[in-house]
Design a protein around this nucleic acid. Structure first.
Lengths: 231, 231
DNA sequence: GGATAGATTTCGCGA
DNA sequence: TCGCGAAGTCTATCC
């Protein structure tokens, strides 16, 4: 890892063209050759970057660049596409290197998979008498998050999202269309379950006779802990 | 901007919980207090981070932490949510600060808006005799990118993407459904226009009788330049 | 300010 | 490798 603080201008060409005027920025060069150009603000996203696999070449400036005050030119060429990042460095204010080694990596918890697991365990949240058929019920266009039966034995397909938006309703609609072709299942009702459901998604779901269920993650997790303690 | 190279462990809690074991990493502290934790690989996305607005507090380690070799503890608390990032620093290998000033910002070219503008100007790319009605034609669920008339006066709704995927076809389908309820417009045909259209999107479009048109951005831009030079 | 659509999205999983 | 869905997505735009 090498961190350079420099006055520079940057040009990217590839999927789009972008230009950064001359200013002082932080250049981060990673061991795999990838380069990030950061300013002192914004979010975690760099102003410009080149993703690996790519190759960094340091070259001399052209006469025109030299006259404009450029000291060196970094060219970062992507290995597989024609994406290219060119950094024209006018002045280096800091240059620091360190050997970081391989990172042991991140441990995560709390995503949609967890919601799905919890809802499968607490399937009666869909209503009294509901029973789980299975998680990830396969269809021709991909698995439905949960397939269940209601108190009367009717099939229920559940799509789970952290945030319920229009896309999720569309997805569930495609599944329902397919599942309803199966005479062993039809008629299949749809349930759209999420921690939060956007108004437009709610309207679309209502229009398609899909029921919306809000999931309380903390309550479900609490229930899970309580159950764990019992056994 | 402050860049610290340190052996540290990191814990994030908020929308999820995540933990990074002890290793050497680069910590970037921006002027707005936001913090990025980078390893020597991956893409531009940090292993962990805290977005502004937030506040960084440097504190003494607890006795247990001190026994484990922790020298100082950074707590980065988000100002509006209860997201929190805790960095336990065992050893500082480098600490560099620089005043970057405000960045003049990025100049972009080549996005969807530009494609839409170019296609509106070169509407005959849809076929001889086509005429533009308007860009961003409003509907109840949002504006259609382009509404046009074909040589026979039939209405044509165009959805434009840089990369054409299933979502775009779904979006256009929703628009068509609405537009076809308007007796002044119906029947409305659909055109899915993109620089590149994924096979699955193409199949779905064909199934819904939506025509696919590939846009050659360079050619359209060249045409635009040529027209500009004429006037 | 809330909702929506785009992103040089990136990331991870499964076929 | 490709395709698809999720993301602590982030960000700009529009209402």
């Amino acid at each position: 890892m090498r961190v350079v603080i420099a006055r520079c201008s940057v040009d990217y060409s590839g999927r789009l063209d972008a230009h950064l005027p001359l200013a002082t920025r932080v250049l981060m060069v990673k061991a795999d050759g990838s380069v990030l150009v950061h300013s002192d603000g914004g979010s975690y996203k760099p102003l410009n970057w080149m993703s690996p696999p790519c190759k960094l070449t340091v070259g001399e400036p052209s006469d025109a660049d030299r006259d404009a005050g450029v000291g060196q030119v970094w060219t970062v060429q992507h290995a597989k596409t024609d994406d290219k990042l060119v950094v024209r460095i006018h002045e280096i204010l800091g240059d620091h290197s360190a050997d970081l080694g391989v990172d042991p990596g991140l441990v995560k918890d709390g995503v949609e998979a967890h919601l799905q697991k919890l809802l499968a365990e607490q399937i009666e949240l869909l209503g009294p008498g509901h029973q789980l058929v299975r998680r990830e019920y396969p269809t021709a266009i991909g698995p439905v998050d949960i397939l269940a039966r209601d108190r009367d034995g009717g099939a229920v397909a559940v799509e789970i999202k952290r945030r319920g938006e229009i896309d999720g309703v569309e997805q569930l609609t495609r599944y329902l269309e397919l599942l309803n072709r199966d005479p062993h299942l039809a008629p299949v009702r749809g349930v759209f379950a999420a921690q939060e459901i956007k108004p437009q998604a709610r309207v679309l779901a209502a229009d398609r006779d899909i029921r919306c269920v809000i999931l309380d993650y903390d309550a479900m997790r609490g229930m899970d802990d309580a159950e764990s303690r019992l056994f």
